[in-house]
Amino acid sequence: MNAPGGPGRPLVVIEHLAKSYRRGDQVVPVLEDISLTIPEGDFIALMGPSGSGKSTLLNLIAGIDKPDAGTLLVDGEDITRLGEAQLADWRASHVGFIFQFYNLMPVLDAFENVELPLLLTSLGRRERRERVEMALSLVGLADRMDHKPNELSGGQQQRVAIARALITDPTIIVADEPTGDLDRKSAGEILGLLQRLNAEMGKTIVMVTHDWHAVESARHVVHLEKGELVDAQAAGTDAGPKALETPMNADARRLPPIECRTRSRKISSVLTLARRLDQRRPFPGLSAAIGGASAFIGVSKDFRTA
């Protein structure tokens, strides 16, 4: 497994992927013969004009839609062959979702929203609580756990959504215009968080965006035009291969690898990251949370999707 902080072996391998929609008896091709490889640890910004099929491609990678043709391997597994129920299990353990409109459950508070994906695991109440508190500390919302979505700002809601997306330590995080509904400042915070998830935790992220500021956070940009990939290029100034040489990332590379990827796996990386972040840029409330969870880090438990 590759060290966190830099792209490594191919994680997502897309070959000859095609997708069309049927409107009445008219077939509208959206994606035609897409081939793309996303290395582990990459942070990709998927760009392109409206209607070019960005969301469609992202949905296929995330396993919430099915292609008409082609293969889509994620971590060696061809997810196009999975049935509905298998795919649901696969998503639960491999994909973290971040949506433009956050998609939090309005009746649940921040804590419960983040806890939601863990209900599909065999983790006990106490372990769930520890993880959720940790994740919310990570996104700087330890003091807002009992707030309902409508009591939080857009930026805060998106941070709750990020906590929810990483709570199960997914293989890949997909984000469809995560800053599309946010002001510049909140968007900056969200992008900063995503960037750090990638750089410091080694999370592979695919993000659809229109925002050039967002692109700067990514390592690579992929352009989609009328259902075809135009080219893939290294992005912004503080991402890409060069970024690997920054002290932060060099340091991060020495950290122990994150164990994951199997149906029964360990989700210690959230905690590892928390510990690391604490040394660098502590979020409010994080230190306290770390104290309570330090014992926990050593005994990261196996868990399985229910």
Binding site: A62, E84, R91, S93, L120, R164, T305
Partner: peptide
């Protein structure tokens, strides 16, 4: 509907 779709995306069963 969006909420139910979100549940399903997160891996909850129909």
């Amino acid at each position: 509907l969006a909420e139910y779709a979100t549940f399903k995306a997160l891996g909850f069963s129909p």
